[in-house]
Every structure is written in structure tokens, then in C-alpha cells.
């Protein structure tokens, strides 16, 4: 029965080691999929490259289906894992700030780190920016952010419960929508890139 570490089945040291190996897989796949190229990432917003959308949704859906089945058959207890609590106001505003960060800087934290360590100078500057941003946030936390960050508190909310449908139905609908989206973006990308060479 999982999760193994939270239920005390594996030690702290083994857990950290597993984290390291899982990280290797994650980093390898991000790089192999092309996530260290800022222009491939930004392409999702301009129609010339949808790699972000394809990888993102295939990963999210694979995990959702896998965890749903494992929870159903008793291999993992979803209640015992790290489950993000919902604070809708800061997440919405923070997400909006991150949207600007993405469109201006062309990365997110994970992708910028992978790109920086593989030699992309623009990504090194982006990572520096993230640290400046976190330091700024940390030192202005009490006067500027604390109240906002703790507003809109909803607790641990499952989106299917929130919509009043079953987890299985939600995952099914999400998969169907993603499949339609994958089909549509493939057509869009073909059309956009046929008109002009984006020199990726």
C-alpha cells in the first residue's frame, strides 16, 4: 500500500534517493521533448509549436488515470499524499503573474533550470530572475503578500467533487477534451508553419 514514505514503509534516506532518480527521469524527458528551447515553449501561444500542450496534458492525464486506478484497487491512498490545498484568489492572481512571466521570459521554473544547465544563456538569466523574485517576495512577504496569499481558502478540494461528478467521469471527459485538442492543434500547427519558416 502506498504512498510508501508517508506511511513509514521506507526511510528518509531511501526516500531522498528515490527523489533523485525520479528527478533524473523528469529532467531527461523535459530535455528530450524540447522543453529547453524557449521558442518551442512560446510556440504554444502563437500556434507554431504545441509541444507544451501535448506533453503537459499527456502527462497529467496519464498520472490521473494511473492514480485513479491505483487508488481504486487499494495500491495507494490518495488521502496520504501531498495534496495541494486550494486558495483560489492567490492562485488565480499568481497564475496571472506567471502568465506574464512566461510570455515575457519564455520559460517556467523547471524548464528554465533544465535549459540553464544545458548551456542556454537566456535561461541562466531567467533562473537568476526567479531567485531575485523569490528574495523580493520573501522580504516583502508580511506587508505585501501574506494576507493575499491566505485569502480564498477552500481546503483540499477535488475538482470532480466540486463539479458534483465522479472522478472517473471527470477523467474520461478530460481525456476526450484533450484528444480533441490534440487533433485540433496538430491541424493549426500545420497551417501556421506552412505559411512561414519560424526557424526553430
Amino acid at each position: 500500500m502506498g504512498p510508501l514514505y508517508p506511511l513509514g514503509i521506507i526511510s528518509d534516506e531511501i526516500n531522498m534517493l528515490i527523489g533523485f532518480f525520479i528527478g533524473i527521469g523528469f529532467g531527461f524527458l523535459l530535455e528530450a521533448a524540447g522543453f529547453t528551447n524557449t521558442r518551442k515553449l512560446a510556440g504554444v501561444f502563437y500556434g507554431y509549436d504545441f509541444v507544451v500542450l501535448k506533453v503537459f496534458f499527456s502527462a497529467g492525464i496519464t498520472a490521473a488515470i494511473g492514480l485513479f486506478l491505483m487508488n481504486h484497487y487499494g495500491y495507494i491512498d490518495i488521502q496520504s499524499i501531498f495534496y495541494p490545498k486550494t486558495f483560489w484568489i492567490p492562485t488565480l492572481i499568481g497564475g496571472g503573474i506567471m502568465a506574464f512571466g512566461f510570455l515575457i521570459g519564455g520559460f517556467c521554473p523547471g524548464t528554465s533550470l533544465c535549459a540553464a544547465v544545458t548551456g542556454k544563456i537566456d535561461a541562466m538569466v531567467f533562473v537568476l530572475g526567479i531567485f531575485i523574485g523569490i528574495f523580493f517576495y520573501a522580504f516583502t512577504y508580511e506587508p505585501l503578500w501574506e494576507t493575499l496569499r491566505n485569502s480564498g481558502k477552500m481546503g483540499k478540494v477535488n475538482i470532480a467533487d466540486w463539479m458534483g461528478i465522479s472522478d472517473g467521469l471527470f477523467i474520461f471527459l478530460m481525456t476526450v477534451i484533450a484528444a480533441i485538442m490534440f487533433f485540433a492543434v496538430t491541424l493549426i500547427q500545420k497551417k501556421v508553419t506552412s505559411k512561414r519558416d519560424y526557424q526553430l
Binding site: T38, F56, P84, K85, F87, P90, T91, L92, I93, G94, G95, G96, I97, M98, F100, G101, F102, L103, I104, G105, G106, F107, C108, P109, G110, S112, I121, D122, A123, V125, F126, V127, L128, G129, I130, F131, I132, G133, I134, F135, F136, Y137, A138, W145, L148, R149
Partner: peptide
């Protein structure tokens, strides 16, 4: 490079306020 720096700063602040980034959250 200037755009990358500004974008990084915004992502640093946004990810803290929003309680996680594109991967973790």
C-alpha cells in the same frame, strides 16, 4: 536577456503567491 530577467522575476513572485508553479501546482 532583459526579457528573460523580467520574466524570471515575475515567475519567482507568481509561483510564491500562487502556491506553486507549472509543474508542482
Amino acid at each position: 536577456l532583459i526579457a528573460a530577467l523580467i520574466g524570471g522575476i515575475l515567475f519567482g513572485v507568481g509561483s510564491q503567491l500562487g502556491r506553486g508553479c507549472t509543474s508542482g501546482m
